[in-house]
Design a protein around this nucleic acid. Structure first.
Lengths: 202, 202
DNA sequence: CAATATACTGTAAATAATTACAGTAGTCAA
DNA sequence: TTGACTACTGTAATTATTTACAGTATATTG
């Protein structure tokens, strides 16, 4: 069903794509015909028929401005991902291109995740530096040894969490810093979530 | 111009938002009226008028399905960003919420950037670990001491680049690895771009 | 308490947009 | 060289959709 497009068909498709990006809703047959100086709206209609038949868009019969582009024809969202780059080939060569990665979806969708800016160098050994953003999944507990966001004395910090007899240990990953021991029920101590990612802008 | 909505107006706005998400194009007055069991399309029209007057959407006179939601009324894109979290307050409390961060735009838009997966521990001192994704801006040269992606003997590697008399030095950030010295014109050596970010999924 | 906004019903006109049908000409594959 | 697809023109019917105007009833605000 998905077949190649003629030059003219691609022009039409590109126009629709751009229009939708700019206007926020699809064009009518008239508007397509005007853009391409067709004397008849049927020229536009024929093209839409071909594009639909070839799987690039969908229409709803009888409804105005009811066309939608199939994912195939939609501009990709996110950043291009390049895989292993072998001998001599230019980075962006097609062979190396693995697709587009949507960073908003890379760490799971709208579910309970949020970003938190990290202060201090306490987790530098785990590759989390001062100023980094950590991606946190909201959860009340974390498995032993996992990195979590915890509240301690009224401040949020990122540490590796280990259970201990009658409490737990917050382990920094920085040789110059000592672990913190928490006794059960002591102080205001809560786990806010698990760190599932790190983002840094240099 | 932007004022509060009544309950009914918010219902209508939410319906439009959901419809556009699902259908890819805006609803007609009829379709809104049907959803809310209005006996007259004018009920829907009145609501759109109110929503437009209050700055939540825009319409094009005389055109069908021509309404667009203003950014204010559009579902936010990206992950919620939480700032410094002070004493006792729950993480997701409003006071801590700083807005939504669109990760696809965090490293600059569609301009010449791409993602590359890093192999090896040679830049571990700079917080770049095996398996991390680096965000690379495509450019032919980098300033002295910046981290760049370079081609060396037919493989892409990430190193800190320093100019040297008659060539340059590729400096790993790993105490157990030695710097690599390149002489002018020697071997296949090219700079592919500058590393502007790091992304890690744990 | 008057003026204004909300939240609708109801009918009809006006216009926007899709659909149908009939052709012309050129290209392309079997 | 026949049949199918592309790429259009042209006219008209048929829906789809917006717009206009006239009301009703209930809140809300100054």
């Amino acid at each position: 069903m998905v077949r190649g497009l003629t030059g003219r068909q691609r022009e039409i498709l590109d126009f629709i794509s751009r229009w939708m990006q700019e206007q926020g809703f699809p064009p009518t047959l008239q508007e397509i015909a005007e853009r391409f100086r067709f004397a008849s709206v049927n020229a536009a209609r024929d093209h839409l028929g071909a594009l639909e038949r070839k799987g690039y868009l969908r229409r709803r019969a009888g409804a105005s401005r009811s066309l939608t582009l199939e994912p195939l024809a939609r501009p990709p969202r996110g950043q291009p991902l390049v895989g292993t780059v072998p001998a001599g080939t230019p980075v962006m060569a097609e062979e190396n291109f693995e697709g587009y990665l949507d960073l908003n979806e890379y760490f799971g969708r709208g579910d309970g995740t949020f970003l938190l800016r990290v202060r201090g160098e306490s987790m530098i050994g785990a590759g989390i530096h001062d100023g980094d953003l950590v991606v946190v999944r909201y959860q009340k507990e974390v498995a032993p040894g996992e990195i979590g966001v915890v509240f301690l004395d009224g401040e949020a910090t990122v540490k590796r969490i280990f259970p201990e007899k009658g409490g737990c240990r917050l382990q920094p990953e920085n040789p110059s810093m000592e672990p913190i021991h928490i006794r059960e029920g002591e102080a205001e101590f809560t786990v806010a979530g698990k760190v599932i990612g790190v983002i840094r802008r240099l």
